[in-house]
Structures are given as structure tokens and as C-alpha cells.
Amino acid sequence: MNNNNHLSSSSLTIRLRNLRKWMIALFILVIFIWSMLGLDYQGFQSTSKVVSLSILKGFMHPDWAYVYLPEGEDLLRELLETLVISILGTFVSAILCIPFAFWAAANMSRLRLFPGMGKFTLSVIRVFPEMIVAILFIKAVGPGSFAGVLALGVHSIGMLAKLFSETIEGIDPGPQEALIACGATRLQTIRFAVIPQVIPQFLSYSLYRFEINIRSATTLGLVGAGGIGTPLIFALQVRNWNRVGVILLGIVLLVVVTDFISSRLRRRII
């Protein structure tokens, strides 16, 4: 290797790269200024300080009585409902996404176009924010946890099926070829060569999605799709900060605990 030559050419590329870096920085700055100009700052009202203080006070003294009420509609039951919504939503999407995953996996069909179409469908599903899906389902089946389950179930297909199809694309083709060689049908090949290879990864991704869904499920109630979000938005509207504090605490605990359990399970599966 010619050291001198190497140095001079690399210094040129470094200079070019530096120029590009500054251009990018400038571009980001311009976009940032543009975005800051458009937002109106009515936020800094005189009441903000008082409200912030009362929120802080509310968080310091959570409404512990709300944790368990004998007549129902308490924190524990709402949290349980949130958990159940995300479990069922994940389950629904884990089942619904299997055909989509095989559709989008490039090694499952000989045609080039067919998996491409599947991938495109999945990315369209992915761009739909789940709140919009939730609102549509609320309009269709009425407010409640059912709309939440459907929203999570449909929205999660986009990501889960993409991950699943990538798993299918990454399998060892050996067993599949062996089965085809000894005359297995297509379904048998999938059952005995593909599925055993992908199941651990499927389960792990489903659990991962469950972790995401539990966060979403806490917000679904803000638009009326069941779960802890509904009492939270009511408490926010009447400015019952002690209750807001205890609900937020409950959400954080729920997310931390489910994250912990789910990641332990995932580690065991793989």
C-alpha cells in the first residue's frame, strides 16, 4: 500500500465529508427554526406555575384510596383490564399475522412480485397510527375494550408480520429441500420444516410486541377504547391530581413489571 497516496486521497474525502456534515447541520438548523416559528406559545400562561405546583403536590400525595375500591372501577381492575387488552391484542395479531408473514416472505414463493406485494401491504398497515385504528373500531363496534383489542390486533400485524417474514426468510433451507425431495406436500413442508425452525423467534417477537402493546393499551383509553386511559383522562379533566398521580404510578409499575417478566421469558425462549 502506498502510504502517501493513501493519505492525500483520504484527506480529500475527509474534507468533502466535513463539508457535507456542515451542510447537514445547517439543513437541520433551518428546519428546526422553521418548526419553532410555527408553534404558538400560549402555553406560558400565568396559571402554568400554579398548575405545575399542584400537579407536583398531587404526585407527592397519590390517592391511595383509589388503588382498591370494593365496588369496582378502581386502579387494580383498570390495570388488569389494560393488561388483558394487550394480551388479547397481541394474541389476535400473532394469529392474524401468520398468513401475512408467509405472504411477505421472499423464500416462500417462486414469484418475485407476490412477496413484494405482501411487504407493501404490511408497510401500509404499519403507517396507520394505532389511535386512528382504535377510533375507527370505536365507531364500528362501540367504545370499550373490544375496540382496543381489535385496534392492537390489527395495528400490530404490520410490525409482527414483517419481523416474522424476516425470520422465515432467514431459515435453513436444508430440511425444506429434504422434505420436498421425498415428496412432501407444501403444507407438510411448512409444518415440519418451516414452523419448527421459526417458532422460538415467533414467540420472542410476539412477547416483544406485547411489551409495546402494553404501553399502547394504557393510552387507548384516552380515546375510549378501554383500559386505564379512561379514568386517567377523567381525572385530568376534573384536575384531580392526586388521582392522576396514583394512576401514573400504576402505569409505570405495570409497564416495568410486564417488561421484566416478558424479557425474562424471551431470554428463556431463545
Binding site: G43, T219, V244, I251
Partner: peptide
């Protein structure tokens, strides 16, 4: 652990309705 929409709901209560929240 706190989802973005929950932050938004809280900030709307603090700073009022609008893009700033």
C-alpha cells in the same frame, strides 16, 4: 415507560390546549 400520548394529556392539562403541549 410513559407513552407519548399520556405525556400529551398531562401537558394539555398543565399548559392548556394547543401544539405547545
Amino acid at each position: 415507560t410513559v407513552p407519548d400520548l399520556l405525556f400529551a394529556a398531562i401537558f394539555v392539562a398543565v399548559f392548556g390546549i394547543g401544539p405547545f403541549a
